[in-house]
Write a protein that binds this DNA or RNA. Structure first.
Length: 928
RNA sequence: GGGCGGUUAGCUCAGCUGGUUAGAGCGCCUGCCUUACAAGCAGGAGGUCGCAGGUUCGAGUCCUGCACUGCCCACCA
């Protein structure tokens, strides 16, 4: 049956079919629960769960491409591979989406009430929440769909409660009235990480605070004048002699007409401003701490929407910014305003809605990340530091290790309660009778005082609390499970640096805490150190690049430069987009995504396609002629675990050469992927397939395939073998086109259900040949030299010309054995060997190994030729100078490694010959 | 205020632990519809590796300073 393929590759015609096939056939299911121990090495990777609110963008696409390449690569090498997918409920983000939807109906969430609102969110989640995973299916991501989870699934929610309760039992979760970052629009506390600082040109207002019972006043400065209404002290530095006489005195607070003490505290920096600072414990974190030190009252002057409250006297009811203006105006009118200065400040805004964050004292839950657990050992942060310092968690690129450690070393307690409705509700119940708090895994029947008047905490947990548990909560923790036993710790995490602290750091803390004793469901063997090492959530973290637009600008909706991956895929094909991302993904660099690159990789896909068409054409002919049988070939098809190529006839130079190159390239791809150098791996396979296999091997093999008989049989068998191997090599990068063609190679009856389950080519040193690679290089050099001269002579491309060659015996033999190749690829009629150098002959080229002359009546353009040779000489002389200087240097000879010295010595010899030839040619030419 | 990165061809970028002639894609120039592929084939031009010092037998690669330029973190009013 002939292989019929259309002339141009059309990705749309095949991709959906394979994407559906992969899912339907469940090819990517990891088998832990079925086979107790496969004996295979295990590779696990957790998909950073997309938010239910998300739409696929180029960043996801890059991340998924990298993960899929690594996962497919491992799977093809025989690893038992689990790529675990799921989605994140994304508390605040999702709640905002639904609130926005409600707003279009003119409603607010409180109009619906908690129950009905949550119902709406669930409906919304069912409708839109799976978008990214759907897109991933279409992109062919080889994840284990049978294990898909959602962070609010019952078993994951149970894990969240379990973790919270255990931390509480250990005193690592506490509740308290503290100052937190508060978003007045979202109406919730947010963590430090959710506050983004923006440099803003603001003002510094200087206010005179009169000293009680005197005419004196001190000047304090503030960027937020409205907070003065809540001032409960003025601080000066105890060492600041300017204020010694005011120690123990009181201030009469303007506008409020309250007396507040002057306190002595390091909070006041004598170097800054006047050295006196207003203290507002309820509205500033530093002041809050100072307030505790001096037992100051906390006067909250704003409500949860940042409107001034009843404590704000005449300003009550006004928005904070409106109040600010009035207050400044009043201060001015009453003569308290000493000055207004321009002031650059980093203003904290809510990451989600960009509202200016207000520090606010409120009752919240925290994780005490720096506290040592009761049973001894390290704090959560210390453990998370230790595993990275000891290399149990390894970062690529390495500089993220420093960034991670610096952050972890300065970490503060983590505020985990959110005044939201969508999320995991905090498992704490308050007694209406005795005020006791019951923290429990399941809803308690009664308080320990016996009362049944229990109400659950209204708040939910920070989304990152639950995602921090994922490496084990997605594997059924706290239960023992085959998955948890087999797949934890995960092998690798690939993610973006934007969630390094939010997620990577939290997973590390949580993993080291809950997957170590005493929380681990199955005890760990080994000493304390071994247990720590095995508790990590992942052994390696690869931080991927940022995908920018073609100009290197960050993609953003407001700039309108967002490249939609789906749209790009529709135009170029998934494989082309994947290959673009892989080829540009050098670790530690950003990607400037440019469509021209994608165009060129679409061309690459087309190249592969057409190589297949050509090969199939020859296969069909060979089968018709009865010289070759696909069925026989299928029998010797490579088995998983086989390295190199299983059967390959190394009769001719080009065969030994391409086999050698194939193995070397396999090694290079392996090395590159081992270091997550996707770009390097992609470049290597690209160049091999196009620049070597297509440009040279196919061309060299053509006449043999036409020859018929045994020659054709061997040629066809070789090219099919090599091509089949190359498809496997390419498969992790371009899964669709390789799957399609691979099935076609076997005429629809492949030895495995998918190329993704076939063996990945691994280098076999015995199949590499320096002799073949060197020989081929000389032959290529010779062919290119002839083409070169022909191009300069503007010889009619079709005209066959005679050539003369001067070379030593080994090269001469090489040429003799490859006469046909030379004739065909350089369009040569006859090649004769001559006994003396052709360097000064016209229409010739010289290399260190040979001289070649094209016999042609028309002479090369003398002036152009003179210029070319002149340039060559210049360059060679420069090089010769360098080489000779090094070789004449005793220190170099004694210190440089032997192969380097030997290399330079050899090169110097070549340069000498080349220079001699070039100079002879130059004199000869000049004479004309 | 701390920390991290970048500056290499016209453009966008590679160049891993210092080592023989610094690469790719696109663009550009010349010639080809050669029976797999014009999304192709063959050939070609184009770089004092930001500047100034230093270490070394040897520096695009390591160190110091400078210039320009991104990014992250930060409770100094």
């Amino acid at each position: 049956m002939p292989h019929e393929l259309p002339k141009a590759y059309d990705p749309a015609a095949i991709e959906t079919r394979w994407a559906e096939y992969w899912v339907r056939e469940q090819l990517f299911t990891a088998e832990a629960s079925k086979t107790p121990d496969s004996g295979q090495p295990v590779f696990t990777l957790l998909l950073p769960p997309p938010n239910v609110t998300g739409r696929l963008h180029m960043g996801h696409m890059l991340n998924q491409t990298e993960m899929d390449i690594i996962v497919r690569w491992h799977r093809m090498r025989g690893f038992e591979t689990l790529w675990l997918p799921g989605t994140d409920h994304a508390g605040i983000a999702t709640q905002m989406m639904v609130e926005r939807q409600l707003a279009t109906e003119g409603k607010k969430r409180r109009d619906l009430g908690r129950q009905d609102f949550l119902k709406r969110v669930w409906e919304w989640k069912e409708q839109y929440g799976g978008a990214i995973l759907e897109q991933m299916r279409r992109l062919g991501a080889s994840v284990d769909w049978g294990r898909e989870y959602f962070t609010m699934d019952e078993n994951l929610s149970r894990a969240v409660r379990e973790a919270f309760v255990r931390l509480h039992e250990e005193g690592l979760v506490y509740r308290g009235n503290y100052i937190v970052n508060w978003c007045p629009r979202c109406g919730t506390a947010i963590s430090d990480l959710e506050v983004v600082h923006e440099e803003t040109q603001g003002k510094l207002w200087e206010i005179r605070y009169p000293v009680a019972g005197s005419d004196e006043y001190v000047v304090v400065a503030t960027t937020r004048p409205e907070t003065m209404l809540g001032d409960t002290a003025v601080a000066v530095n105890p060492r600041d002699q300017r204020y010694t006489h005011l120690h123990g005195k009181k201030i009469r607070l303007p506008l409020m007409n309250r007396e507040i003490p002057i306190i002595l505290d390091e909070l006041a920096n004598p170097e800054f401003g006047t050295g006196a600072v207003k203290v507002t414990p309820a509205h500033d974190p530093n002041d809050f701490a100072a307030g505790l030190r001096h037992n100051l009252p906390q006067i909250t002057v704003m409500d949860e929407y940042a409107r001034m409250n009843e404590n704000a006297g005449p300003y009550a009811g006004h928005d904070r910014f409106e109040a600010r203006e009035r207050i400044v105006q009043d201060l001015q009118e009453q003569g308290y305003l000493a000055g207004i200065k321009d002031h650059q400040l980093a203003i904290g805004k809510c990451q989600r809605c960009k509202t200016v964050v207000e520090p606010r004292v409120s009752m919240q839950w925290f994780v005490a990340v720096n506290k040592k657990p009761g049973h001894g050992g390290m704090s959560m942060a210390e453990a998370a530091i230790a595993v990275v310092e000891k290399g149990y968690v390894k970062f690529t690129p390495e500089n993220y290790k420093t960034i991670y450690l610096q952050w972890m070393q300065n970490i503060h307690d983590w505020c985990i309660s959110r005044q939201l409705w969508w999320g995991h509700r905090i498992p704490a119940w308050y007694c209406g009778d005795c005020n006791e708090i019951t923290v429990a895994r399941e809803e308690p029947k009664a308080c320990k005082c016996g009362s049944t008047r229990l109400t659950q905490d209204e708040d939910v947990l920070d989304t990152w609390f639950s995602s921090g548990l994922l490496p084990f909560s997605a594997m059924e923790w706290p239960n023992t499970s085959p998955d948890l036993a087999r797949y934890y710790p995960t092998s690798l995490l690939i993610t973006g640096f934007d969630i390094l602290f939010f997620w990577v750091a939290r997973m590390t803390m949580m993993g080291c805490h809950f997957m170590n004793e005493p929380h681990r469901p199955t005890p760990l063997a080994g000493d304390v150190e071994a247990r720590l090492r095995e508790s990590v959530p992942f052994r390696e973290v690869y931080i991927h690049s940022l995908v920018n637009d073609a100009e290197g600008q960050k993609m953003s909706k407001t700039k309108g430069n967002v490249v939609d991956p789906i749209e790009t895929i529709e135009r170029f094909g998934t494989d082309a987009v994947r290959f673009t991302l892989a080829a540009m993904a050098a670790p530690g660099t950003n990607i400037a995504f440019s469509e021209t690159r994608t165009e060129s990789y679409r061309a690459f896909a087309n190249k592969i396609w057409n190589a297949a068409r050509f090969i199939f054409m020859n296969v069909d002919r060979a089968q018709q002629d009865g010289v070759w049988s696909l069925a026989d070939f299928a029998k010797i098809a490579p088995k998983p675990g086989e390295v190199g190529l299983p059967r390959f006839h190394t009769a001719d130079l080009e065969d030994r050469w391409i086999l050698s190159r194939f193995n070397r390239v396999s090694q290079e791809v392996h090395d590159a992927l081992s270091g997550y150098r996707f770009h390097e791996a992609a470049h290597v396979v690209y160049h091999f397939f196009w620049g070597e296999f297509c440009d040279w091997y196919i061309e060299l093999v053509k006449p043999r395939m036409m020859a018929g008989g045994n020659t054709a049989r061997i040629a066809v068998e070789n090219i099919v073998s090599l091509f089949e191997g190359a498809l496997r090599l390419l498969s992790p990068f371009m899964p669709f086109i390789t799957e399609e063609i691979w099935h076609a190679v076997y005429d629809g009856k492949p030895p495995r259900r998918s190329i993704a389950l076939a063996a990945y080519p691994q280098a076999d040193a015995s199949q590499m040949s320096v002799e073949a690679e060197t020989g081929m290089a000389i032959l290529q050099d010779l062919i290119v030299s002839v083409r070169n001269v022909r191009a300069e002579l503007k010889v009619e491309p079709k005209a066959k010309l005679d050539i003369e060659i001067f070379a030593d015996d080994p090269v001469r033999n090489l040429v003799e054995q490859n006469r046909e190749a030379l004739a065909r690829l350089a369009n040569v009629n006859s090649a004769t060997f001559v006994g003396e150098s052709l360097a000064k002959a016209s229409n010739s080229r010289s290399t260190a190994r040979f001289d070649v002359r094209v016999v042609y009546e028309q002479k090369i353009d003398v002036a152009a030729e003179l210029e070319r040779i002149g340039k060559d000489i210049e360059k060679l002389e420069r090089e010769q100078g360098n080489a000779q200087r090094q070789l004449g240097n005793e220190a170099f000879l004694s210190k440089a490694p032997a192969h380097v010295v030997e290399g330079i010595r050899r090169r110097e010899g070549e340069i000498k010959i080349l220079l001699e030839k070039a100079r002879t040619a130059l004199t000869e030419l000049s004479a004309k």
